[in-house]
């Protein structure tokens, strides 16, 4: 494929809390090519959002990147200061947030919030030009441009999400990270939005990272899929591979937890137990307390994240050869 724009290597991120240190992201590595879309999937609390926030270094006060590299077009973000990060944010990497309902500032007109980004990054100070650009963006995401002079509370949930997408696209970024972009919406709006995002991505030719707990959503829009569990990336392969030849038992479990409309009928299985408390991660493979195939080695040693052939990476002592 084309050029690699993002290379994440051994990224490790901790939260310091009252109760102790939480390793939210542990030794995560992946790459992203230009124009490619990557899906990150996992249960809530597995570190997907932490990975996304780390990429832009949007860290909470108590979060710290302990190690690793985030190379964007050759520049490592990790050592950069907040001020040095600023030009990259939104201009190169933008985000569509999980809680789109609240990610617009309630006291400013939606259009002005987009214009603000245009002013900052593109130096578009002329009001008329900036409004022209917002009109383009609104049309692109399927919103009436007249809405730009309204306030967020006058929008419906779906409209807000579209506005947030328009805002994310405003500076022509190289990469858009969509963090659960459709979770709060009803299914029909969800589907329409996802398709539109996908179309926009292909039209503009930007890269994308989708984050969701719903593997069906991810599969629809991603070229490659990464599965996360308890702060670790446990499997990474093309969408096709993940669906037809999953290697990690967790991936298998995730997929059997979701119904398939087109595939053959099968019983839905739920995964017993809860994801581990990251304050005290389990020894060895973090999945072993819930894994039906766990053996002694799983409890003691951490499996290596290695290639199982054809760029299909997984971290497991007992790779599954099942076909779903």
């Amino acid at each position: 494929m084309s050029e690699t724009i993002l290379r994440v290597e051994n990224l490790t991120m901790h939260y310091t809390t009252r109760a102790g240190i939480v390793s939210a992201v542990d030794d995560v590595s992946f790459t992203l090519d230009e124009g490619e879309s990557l899906g990150l999937v996992g249960e809530s609390g597995c570190g997907k959002t932490s990975v996304a926030n780390s990429l832009l270094k949007l860290l909470a006060d108590n979060a710290v990147i302990k190690g690793g590299q985030i190379r964007f077009k050759g520049t490592d973000f990790v050592p950069l200061s907040e001020e040095e990060m600023r030009p990259y944010r939104w201009r190169n990497i933008s985000m569509v947030f999980q809680a789109a309902m609240n990610s617009l500032n309630p006291v400013y007109r939606v259009g002005d919030q987009i214009i603000e980004a245009l002013e900052t990054h593109l130096g578009l100070y002329s009001h008329a030009q900036a409004r022209q650009r917002v009109t383009e963006l609104f049309t692109m995401v399927g919103l009436d441009p007249a809405l730009m002079d309204q306030y967020p509370h006058e929008y419906s949930g779906g409209m807000r999400q579209r506005a947030v997408i328009a805002m994310a696209l405003s500076c022509n970024p190289d990469l858009v990270i969509a963090d659960e972009p459709t979770t709060a919406l009803d299914v029909i709006v969800q589907d329409a939005l996802l398709r539109q995002l996908k179309t926009l991505q292909e039209m503009i030719g930007m890269s994308m990272i989708y984050i969701s707990h719903d593997i069906a959503v991810i599969a629809e829009v991603s070229d490659r899929i990464g599965v996360m569990y308890a702060g670790k990336l446990v499997e990474l392969a093309s969408a096709d591979e993940i669906f037809h030849h999953p290697v990690h038992p967790y991936t298998v479990a995730l997929m059997s937890a979701f119904p398939s409309v087109t595939g053959p009928k099968r019983e839905l299985q739920t995964l017993a137990g809860e994801p581990p408390n990251l304050l005290y991660p389990p020894s060895g493979c973090r999945f072993h307390p819930r894994c039906p195939f766990a053996t002694e080695i799983c409890r003691q040693q951490e499996p290596e994240f290695k290639d199982h052939g054809g760029g299909h990476y997984a971290a497991c002592w007992h790779p599954q050869e099942v076909t779903v």
């Binding site: 137990g273 581990p276 005290y280 389990p282 307390p289 819930r290």
Partner: peptide
């Protein structure tokens, strides 16, 4: 016993 451990394996 077994289910107990599954529900809350760490406590």
């Amino acid at each position: 016993m077994a289910t107990e451990e599954r529900h809350n394996p760490f406590a």
